[in-house]
């Protein structure tokens, strides 16, 4: 049975939809399993003294006394309308809180990614070029180092050194390039370490491939080979790496945002965790998953433009 182009896209969308449904189900299940009692938390966070009747009423109001599937469906219904519930901590609509914070996290992720690529591609290529030289050994050592340091350690070190000791940056973050610089670097450093190794391995793979010796034989300079040819062939694998590293960027942002006070969704979630505000945590997880899925889909989609082989296959 032949499927048309549109049919295939529809099929893939279906698959994506199933995944999204699965994601919502999982996050809802998570929240449902929370040992915290939403009604009690709601009152406690406001310092109000609830009576038993008030608790029962609150539970009914929050809808937590209904059976699982009913809650799930009503939550999904709300979801379709962009309603993610209200924070247990301060009653604010979760969707608004998260949406306000999201651009910050996205900005942070984007800047970190750009920094990583800018740093790691040239350094990685150089490593491949001067393979096994002192430089290469040195870089391998350094990258090992940064790979093994937890990003919150790096963040704290940076905070200590750059904000306090050297006073170069302010502690209260400003919402411009200066403010985003430190958290981005904290995220970019360990990621670059990983990237440099990957770029090195990929570049080596390319260098050892057939066409390079052909170019060499024709007298093309090493640098030119590196920059013009190898780099171009790295585009596709690099894109894959971007997709993979996005997950660690979004995840790493949690702690880094908390340390630098950057008002992204990570910071929101840490506050929520502190208050066992599972409604926010659940919405946060869902949001991150959707962002991740969207970006990965974009990455998949952009393969077609970069790699002619994929394009031909349709």
């Amino acid at each position: 049975m032949k499927r048309s182009r549109g049919g295939r896209i529809a099929w893939r969308l279906c698959g994506a939809l199933v995944v999204i449904l699965g994601v919502t189900f999982l996050t809802f299940l998570l929240a449902y399993l929370s040992p915290a009692d939403a009604a009690i938390s709601w009152f406690a966070d406001r310092g109000i003294y609830p009576s038993e009747e008030e608790l029962i009423a609150k539970r009914a109001e929050l809808g937590v006394d209904r059976p699982f599937f009913e809650q799930y469906l009503s939550w999904m219904w709300g979801l379709c309308h962009g309603d993610l519930g209200e924070s247990l901590r301060n009653g604010a609509p979760v969707a608004d809180t998260l949406m306000e914070a999201l651009p910050f996290t996205l900005a942070l992720t984007a800047v970190s990614l750009v920094m990583t690529l800018v740093v790691s591609i040239p350094l990685g290529l150089l490593c491949a070029r001067y393979r096994d030289s002192a430089y290469d050994q040195f870089m391998r050592f350094i990258t090992y180092l940064f790979n093994a340091l937890p990003n919150f350690f790096i963040a704290l070190l940076m905070l200590y050194l750059l904000c306090v000791r050297l006073g170069w940056f302010s502690v209260i973050p400003t919402y411009d390039f200066k403010g985003i610089f430190m958290p981005s670097v904290a995220l970019a450093l360990p990621l670059s370490a990983w990237y440099i190794r990957q770029v090195r391995a990929l570049a080596l793979g390319q260098i050892n491939a057939g066409y390079v010796s052909g170019l060499r034989a024709r007298g093309v300079s090493e640098t030119r080979i590196l920059v013009k040819h190898v780099l171009r062939n790295l585009a596709v694998p690099l894109l894959t790496l971007v997709g993979i590293s996005l997950g660690s960027l979004l995840g790493g942002a949690v702690i880094v945002e908390n340390i630098f006070g950057w008002p992204g969704v990570g910071g929101v979630s840490v506050l929520a965790i502190g208050h066992r505000d599972y409604i926010v945590i659940q919405a946060y997880a869902l949001l991150m998953a959707i962002v991740f899925l969207i970006v990965n889909a974009l990455v998949d989609f952009s393969y077609r433009f970069i790699d002619p082989r994929v394009r031909k296959r349709g």
Partner: peptide, 24 residues
């Protein structure tokens, strides 16, 4: 496959934080 994909739809640390955050 679908279950694996669903789990992998979350950035790892985010999911870990969410699960641990909710469970306590």
């Amino acid at each position: 496959s679908k279950v694996v994909t669903v789990f992998q739809a979350f950035p790892s640390f985010v999911l870990a934080v969410a699960i641990a955050g909710i469970l306590g």
